[in-house]
């Protein structure tokens, strides 16, 4: 059960009196124990989607369901208790932790908020061990810790609420290279060990490839490709996914320059006509500027939105 489900979620901001659609009808689900990676360039709506998924933002259309119950957007009242089981991990552990409270105090605060009972040091130690830290860290202040350790503390604080679903918004991009892979692995461990569903949002395709069961690729507010990680990475069907994978430089010493994808993500206030990607797409044909591609099921679990795929005969169960 405990599934996180987004159905036709739209997020709209107002800018200069105009509506800017940052998230444009996204369907996405995360099963218990599953790691779903959401990738895309900056400005594609990843963070807006994360905020809508945990109820920090009210979607302008569509709905977010946890266990089949609607996630109520945060207003002035406290969040409903059931919603505490949906937790968000922020990007920057340098600003998401209180610099003036010891780590142990911050964790016991979180336990008290979530359960209404005071946390003993045993529970704090348990939380620290869950994220791979020494329980003695409870006595430290955030500034005494490395970035990777701080992000583990932030994860431990989210775990204090005994979540069934975690949404992590760029949780490793503020960390050192060596800490990035380790913290990313921590999310996999939590998913497997505690059965927590993880929506892992990152612009780092290589890390996502390493940890995610499924990958969703987002462009200008829409999911343009989604499927099992190996398929999406090894045989991308959407030209945008192909461009993203080709742009990752590999540390193989071969001196190969990564492939360039010219241009920037367009302004969501004035999205291009037809397929949003067509102005940058190396494969674009005339039709692309007029026809708006739908997500097309290529196999039961792999879908992509490109009109070039529409003419292909369906490949049954690749």
């Amino acid at each position: 059960m405990s599934e996180l489900e987004l159905r036709g979620v739209e997020v709209t901001y107002r800018r200069d009196g105009r509506a800017v659609r940052a998230v444009d009808g996204v369907d996405l689900s995360v099963a218990p124990g599953e790691v779903v990676g959401l990738v895309g360039e900056s400005g594609c709506g990843k963070s807006s989607l994360a905020r809508a998924a945990v109820g920090l933002l009210a979607p302008s259309a569509g709905e977010v369901l946890l266990d089949g119950h609607a996630v109520a957007p945060l207003r002035r009242r406290a969040r409903p208790a059931a919603q505490r089981r949906l937790q968000l991990v922020f990007q920057d552990p340098y600003s998401s932790l209180n610099p003036r409270r010891r780590v142990g105090r911050q964790l016991s605060d979180a336990v008290r908020l979530a359960t209404g009972t005071t946390a003993g040091s045993a529970r704090v130690a348990e939380l620290l061990e869950l994220v791979g830290l020494d329980p003695a860290m409870a006595q430290r202040y955030p500034h005494e810790l490395s970035g990777g350790q701080r992000q583990r503390i932030a994860v431990a604080r989210a775990l204090a609420a005994e979540p069934v679903q975690l949404v992590a918004d760029e949780p490793i991009s503020a960390l050192d290279a060596s800490a990035q892979a380790q913290v990313a692995d921590l999310f996999v461990t939590l998913a497997r060990k505690l059965g927590i569903g993880v929506l892992f949002i990152s612009h780092d395709l290589a890390i996502v490839r390493e940890i995610a069961d499924r990958i969703a690729v987002m462009y200008l507010g829409r999911v343009v490709e989604i499927g099992p990680t190996a398929q999406v990475w090894d045989r991308p069907r959407h030209p945008y996914t192909a461009a993203l994978t080709a742009a990752v430089p590999r540390a193989d010493g071969a001196g190969t320059l990564p492939q360039d994808l010219p241009g920037d993500v367009p302004d969501p206030a004035a999205p291009p006509s037809g397929c949003h990607f067509h102005p940058r797409c190396p494969l674009a044909i005339d039709d692309c500027s007029t026809r708006d591609p739908r997500l097309l099921d290529l196999t039961p679990d792999h879908a992509a939105a490109c009109i070039l795929l529409e003419d292909e005969p369906a490949v049954p169960g690749r």
Partner: peptide, 13 residues
């Protein structure tokens, strides 16, 4: 150790 800390996709192997 720096190379090993990279995900295989980054190493390219």
């Amino acid at each position: 150790s720096l190379l090993e800390a990279l995900p295989p996709a980054h190493r390219g192997s």
